[in-house]
């Protein structure tokens, strides 16, 4: 033990944070590659890896004394977080629109996503799903990455890499999530706000599925489901 008496040393603290990231990622892998491949039609099996990952995150927050506010469950910096996200979102939407126009002939489908065919249905699904993903990605993985590398480009890169790897073997989705993950992780380190990130997640997902045909994205499928 290299830290002060009764505290973990730096190396131990980093190793523990890395183990936490790996453990949550392993739960996602078990869900995406194990349950969806072997669990048949029953999605109840998903509750086990998802429940274990959530239990770990909550337990870890408690052990480290992180409050909901620390994690980004707050509104006081919502506007500033949106400002931090705006350049990345605008750039992403322009790039997506250009890709959709140049490569796929501009056949945009504005409300063809999940959550039904209405904008309201999509918005609810997109924001809730985005909030869950951003909590795990930023509220947990980004924060643990900062324990390993400190705030800055290395922890941002690690967060985006983990996010992209969990979207394999879908190559285009992995690339898109890596780029978006960089922007989100950077914005979180400037203004930690999960609601703004969830909104951004929903808008960018909507932009992605509206501009790029589902066939090119393989219907956003990841893990074993990617293969049909």
């Amino acid at each position: 033990m290299s830290g002060s008496v009764g505290q973990l040393g730096d190396a131990e603290s980093r190793a523990l944070a890395a183990w936490e990231i790996a453990s949550v990622a392993a739960s996602v892998v078990v869900a995406a590659w194990g349950v969806l491949a072997l669990g048949g039609v029953s999605r109840l099996w998903l509750a086990v890896p998802v429940g274990l990952a959530v239990a770990l995150m909550i337990y870890s927050h408690g052990g480290r004394g992180e409050s909901l506010r620390d994690l980004g469950w707050r509104f006081d910096n919502f506007g500033r977080a949106l400002v931090a996200l705006a350049p990345m979102m605008l750039a992403s939407m322009v790039v997506l629109a250009a890709c959709g126009w140049l490569w796929f002939g501009g056949r945009f489908s504005l409300f063809g996503g999940r959550g039904g065919s209405t904008l309201a249905g999509y918005a609810v699904w997109g924001v809730v799903w985005g909030l869950l993903q951003q909590y795990a990605l930023q509220g947990f993985i980004n924060r643990r990455a900062q324990i390993i590398f400190g705030a800055g480009w290395r922890s941002i890169l690690l967060t985006a890499l983990v996010f992209a790897l969990l979207h394999l073997p879908n190559p285009w989705l992995a690339a898109a999530t890596f780029l978006a993950g960089l922007g989100w992780a950077h914005a979180y380190q400037r203004a930690p706000n999960l609601f703004a990130l969830a909104l951004s997640h929903a808008v960018l997902t909507w932009a992605l599925i509206s501009t790029v045909p589902a066939a090119a994205l393989e219907g956003l499928r990841v893990g074993f489901k990617y293969f049909g």
Binding site: G6, Q7, L8, E12, S13, L16, S23, G63, G65
Partner: peptide, 29 residues
């Protein structure tokens, strides 16, 4: 407050809390 939150990204764990978290990770695995 944001800066405080980010400082909180690296709170130093006590040895006892670290041991408990390690045991939790082993149990989860």
């Amino acid at each position: 407050r944001d800066a405080e939150s980010l400082t909180h990204a690296s709170p130093r764990l006590s040895a006892r809390a670290g041991a408990r978290l390690s045991r939790f990770l082993v149990a989860k695995s």
